[in-house]
Every structure is written in structure tokens, then in C-alpha cells.
Amino acid sequence: MTALLHIKDFSAAYGEVPVVSSVSLDLKAGEIMALTGRNGMGKTTLLRGIMGLTPVRRGTMQFAAEDIAAQTTEMNSRAGIAYVPAGREIFGSLSVRENLIMCARGGEVGNAWTFERVMALFPRLGERINHGGKQLSGGEQQMLAIGRALMTNPRILLIDEATEGLAPLVAREIWRTLSEICASGMSAIIVDRDLKRLSRIVSGVAVMFRGEIAFAGTPAALLSDDALVRKYIGL
């Protein structure tokens, strides 16, 4: 079976400074992968590179057997890649409802993400449906950012810093919905520092260190090696 997302020797740089170098990665349809590592190791750049927001300096990038390295961001979105950025970046001048319906794009009949289905997933958003994006709490913003990504009916979700800066109770809520989303057959790459929670929903984990993938394997293999965890993640 060919990979849904196939990345080989991907490199990206800001000006002269290489940020990601020679990263190779494969993700099968329906697979959930964790991407972790310390700050500034290139995780965000890798996700932005897949989304087409950071230009590919070198390497190949294929999605559903199509070459996407030279595609624009909006083409990637329409091909089925959705992005939840670290800063949430919801549209503050739009209401919660507008944030969602603006992004709506049809999906598979019967299994499509619709406004109602997103509302059912995040009941808290339903209470604030006509509020402006700016008025939401951090947790609500993250729910909206995930909901907005789902409204495009993607085949893969790229989630950067899934629970960063959220209160424990809210973070637990996000994890619950993420496992629900993942159980629906969605593929995803999730960036977070909470390895324990991540390990419950992902099948593979990749650790980035100074722009390269320093470890790739199962969550169990990573968690069982304290030296690795200390060196690359620093818990």
C-alpha cells in the first residue's frame, strides 16, 4: 500500500539558515503520527512545508500519489490537507459560525464533516456561536481551529501544539475529541509535548532534533528509553 503522505529528503530554510534538513517521512491513510521535540527544532517548519506555507528548498513531497512540493497552499487545502497552527490563528473578525461555514467544503456522503457534526463534537462552541473569534478563550479558540479544519473535509490533519497553554481540564477535552476524530479514520500528524496522552492515540512517533528526525518508531519504544526522552524532549 502506498503512503498517503510521502516525504523524502525535505529541506527548508529561512534565508541562509537551514531549519529543516533531509527529513523523510511516510504516513499511511488512517495513520496517526506524533511529532515531538524541543522548541525550535523544526516541527512547525515541517508542518508549514507540507501545507505549502514554507517553500520546499529541496526534496520530494507527495500527497495521495500527487507531487505537491510545487503546489500552492490553497491547492494543498483542496487536495485534502488541513492545518491547525500553533497560534490557532482563527479569524478574529468573523464569528464562530462564520469561521466554520466559510471553510465548508463537501466530503464523502454519509461521512462528511458538517456544521452540525462539528457542533456535536464541540458543544461549547455551540454556546458561543455568534461571538466574535476574538472573544473566545484559548481552549475555545483551539476547538474552533480544529472544527474549522474539519469543515474542509480533509484526508489529513496537521495539528501544531494541540494543547499548548491550555488548562488541564480543557486539554483533556481536546484530547478526547482528538481521539474521537482519529477514530473516524482520519490521518493526522499531531505536535505536542504531552507524550503520555499522545501515545494513547498515535501509532508512530517521530522526534525532531536540530532540523532532522532523530528518532522514529513506536511510542512505547520512545517512552521506554529514558535517555532518549531526556536528550530530545527534556521531560
Binding site: T72, T73, E74, S77, R78, F91
Partner: peptide, 12 residues
């Protein structure tokens, strides 16, 4: 107008 990159990431 508000966030060009995110608008593109949403397929606009």
C-alpha cells in the same frame, strides 16, 4: 484581509 496565510490554508 485578516490573515492571508490561514485563508489560503483553508482553501481560499
Amino acid at each position: 484581509a485578516e490573515n492571508r496565510d490561514m485563508a489560503r490554508a483553508m482553501g481560499i
